[in-house]
Simulated scan of single mutants.
Amino acid sequence: MSADSGKFSGTLPYAATTLLVECAAYQSRLIPIQRSTGKASVVVIIPLLPVTEQAKNKPYRQTEQTAYVQDNETRSAGHDTAGVQRGIFRVFDATRNTPLPATVCFFFTKSGRKTCLTTNASGQVSLAFRERDIVALEASASDYEPYAGNLVIEQLGGSSVKHAIPMNRTLTLLAVEAKGATRCMIRVGQQIVPLTVLQPGRFAAYDLLPGQYELSIGYGKHAVQRTVDLRSGLNWTSFTKSADTIAIVKSPRPATAPEPSVRNHELAPSLLSIDSIPMIYFEQSSYVLRPDSQRVLQQVAQYMKTHPDYTLEITGHTDNVGTPSLNQTLSMYRAMVTASFLARQGVDDDRFIKAGLGGNQPLATNDTEINKARNRRVSLKLISTR
């Protein structure tokens, strides 16, 4: 059971193979446990997404099913377009909003019929419903958790109705224990991404894909490097500085990023104007901090460490691409990543006020790519506690 903060702790038996995380109003997560030798104290982040409540003519997860009985009213089962509802179903990654190759199966309550379809390049399937019914649907895609939902068909007016089927990629979590370490980074493609600091010497990542990665653990001006093979589920590893001193190398520099469409204006080293901290910008559907954002945050952290009577409001925002619920989650991730970076610079986490507003407060109209880029941001505001 978690506290109000969303944190929980417990002991996993050695024979445990799966971790089930359930929370009211959020989708459950089923996480395979990858074995590791010996005992370990693991600290991880487990992201959850909100569920969709039961509704008519709109898919919702079967976990949200409540008592519902259709009346015996019948409609034409022929081919008259007035007695048809054409459903267009888009299957996509719930976090990245990208289309998925998937199989979608429909189970009709009244006839007992089952129909399975494969998505096209846009992640879509379409199907004509010719009678009022309660239809179960299941979607499956490689490396994703199965989607099980229901669809109540009530309206047969010849219209086309678009439906969204968001799917959760099977989580690949990484927990790193490295006593005395001040930082932990992982190479993802050509980028070097910092892991989130959860406790002193404990780091975590929660948005990875299965595969081989290079970890870098920082001790002062040097780092220990290690290659790790991650599988779907919960992975963990530990470092000891004394055992790994032979592998100490210079800390890697972040890979050069492409010229961004919206640049951050760097703060003066003395942070002369605390009322005009530059925005932190993000790429589309991403919550990875860019190098120019990190430079701004380093100066914000420097100011906060020398001015302990300030707290910091960290507010995440998105453009209008994607559903409101997904954008709400993405905006909160952006705020959390920003706070985690500042914490790694030595600022106490209890000095942050984090919020995610989705796309509800755009700086610009979302009519061009440049304007959308301006809206993919985190705003920072220092507040005096005196």
Rank of each mutant, 00 (worst) to 15 (best):
A82T: 12
V152W: 04
V43F: 05
Q190L: 03
T119M: 01
K381L: 14
L297F: 12
E145W: 05
E369A: 13
R253D: 07
A164P: 09
D133I: 09
L330H: 04
T18D: 07
I33H: 04
K58W: 05
Q361P: 11
P260Y: 14
N97F: 09
H317E: 03
G201M: 02
P291K: 02
R376S: 03
Q302A: 12
P99R: 05
I370G: 04
Y219A: 12
Q191S: 02
A24T: 03
F8A: 15
G322P: 14
M1P: 15
I33C: 05
M279W: 13
L100E: 07
L20H: 11
Q65M: 13
M167Y: 00
T385M: 11
V51A: 13
V91K: 01
T245H: 05
G157I: 09
N235T: 02
S273A: 14
E154C: 11
L19E: 11
L171N: 10
G233W: 05
A204R: 02
S216D: 11
Y287K: 00
L198W: 04
F282K: 01
G87H: 01
G38S: 08
G316Q: 03
M279S: 13
N360C: 12
A223G: 08
N150C: 01
T227G: 07
Y68P: 13
T338W: 01
I192Q: 05
T338Y: 00
Q361A: 09
Q299I: 14
R132A: 12
D348Y: 03
T52N: 09
D143T: 07
T172N: 08
V43I: 11
L382Q: 02
V104L: 05
Q284N: 05
D229T: 15
V347I: 03
I383V: 10
R86T: 11
L198P: 14
S2M: 11
L19W: 12
W236F: 12
G211H: 12
D292S: 15
F92E: 09
A3G: 08
E266W: 10
T368N: 06
N366G: 10
R376M: 07
A164Y: 06
F239D: 11
R75K: 14
Q298C: 12
P194L: 06
I46R: 02
Q199Y: 09
S76Y: 07
Q345M: 04
T109V: 10
